[in-house]
Design a protein around this nucleic acid. Structure first.
Lengths: 234, 234
DNA sequence: AAAGTTTTAGGACATATGTCCTTCCCAACG
DNA sequence: CGTTGGGAAGGACATATGTCCTAAAACTTT
């Protein structure tokens, strides 16, 4: 992690994502721009809270490790998104671990300044309400989906979300094998079982296994299997 | 459902739960007190939103029915709690169905007035932020817990939460059999499987099956099995 | 009290998923 | 060019859970 002293870049992000309207002017001097490399941890579960982060570049992985050591990936995030909002509101330690998947830029604001200057700033409160309710929705449908459907269905939904969203024509319809472990942890199953499910989907002709990646062969069929629900979307 | 025209009772609730501070004075004339009987539905998933409700008396069951018809109970609520908050913030239809488990009193405020008089009212915004982040916490740990642990562990946690919280000495440590189906739906499993698990816990001497109810025999043992996590707490 | 009806527990079997371990493939390295 | 190490896929087996159905119990109605 390193701080980026680049006022112009900060300004650029503020404009792109329309951040200024939600912040109190008094806060502006206290914004810091941080950069994280691939694999770096932004915060670890159990850390005491102290910053609110705005993700403005790159991709984050949010996950949680159980006392038994099992990892559960909760989500991937792309700009604009917020980290540490719940912790800020509740004044609690971080619940999850946040890792940079690519090079990541985040605008950080120390809670101290937020409390001092913006605890009654309506636009920020409304912004937080919005972000948090959205997170609640995702979490809520995720819970139902996980409890109600088997891994096969969840993986179908996952494949559809991950393989066709990036706009990357090359990888369209393909999932790199190296991401399979992540996928398993995100879906909440074991790597072994995911493999079994892929094997089954192969037999059905929905996907095909190649060296290094898995290719979607029948998008419509997967979508039907997933009940047309894109639970892992964004 | 019927409206209660009892200004004094309304006042009484407002004081007991310190509701006035979070509301804008302009709103006060628009508060309505509703009463629901056991089994009545307050709202059904898919309903268009229109009221924000404050639960001030009785017990609510929040549940969700999947397209396939499976029911998943998300929580039980007791005063003071809020219903329709997420829907109010997002302007979306109700996600879940809300049913009165006992006789229930709720203070209702139509979204129209909230928007008109309180959309910038900081105390309300803060109150909502608080309530919603708390709901997020519950949902979040619920998700992890469900994905990471088998039914036996979840049921142990459930038993501890439900059997020892009410302060009702008579039922302390006991779970009425008639609630078993609810319990299964709350835990996210089938009634059949729950029975199997109870049988197993019996063999271990942790609980005992009697006519009409299940009795906890070894609270400490259950707590250990549940990893000391009380996921269903309130 | 007898007959029917609903509620509740459990049997039988199939499917879903986890754990552990082995095999195979490929790359790095001597 | 063989050796070794690591990662990825899959086999074998155990456990967890779902579905459908049956048996027993309790409760209603006549």
């Amino acid at each position: 992690m390193r701080e980026i002293h680049d006022t112009e870049l900060l300004q650029h992000y503020m404009e792109t994502f329309e951040i200024k309207p939600i912040l109190n002017d008094d806060l502006l001097p206290y914004l810091t721009l941080f950069s994280y490399d691939h694999g770096e941890l932004i915060c670890t579960q159990g850390d005491p809270y102290n910053h609110l982060y705005l993700l403005v570049k790159g991709k984050l992985k949010i996950f949680n490790t159980s006392p038994e050591g099992r990892t559960l990936i909760l989500s991937f995030k792309t700009p604009l998104d917020v980290v540490g909002d719940i912790e800020y509101v509740q004044g609690t330690d971080f619940i999850n671990t946040v890792e940079a998947v690519s090079e990541v830029h985040m605008i950080a604001i120390h809670h101290r300044w937020l409390k001092k200057f913006a605890s009654d700033h309506t636009p920020l409160l409304k912004f937080l309400l919005n972000v948090i309710t959205q997170k609640f929705y995702v979490k809520s449908s995720s819970l139902s989906f996980n409890l109600l459907y088997p891994v096969e269905v969840r993986f179908a939904s996952y494949l559809l979300s991950v393989c066709f969203d990036e706009g990357d024509a090359l990888y369209s319809g393909k999932l790199s094998t190296s991401h399979l472990i992540d996928a398993a942890n995100l879906i909440g199953t074991s790597y072994r079982h995911l493999n079994r499910v892929i094997q089954h989907l192969s037999k059905e002709g929905l996907v095909e296994r190649h060296k290094g990646f898995i290719e979607v062969k029948n998008r419509e069929g997967l979508s039907e299997l997933a009940n047309h629900r894109n639970i892992y979307e964004k």
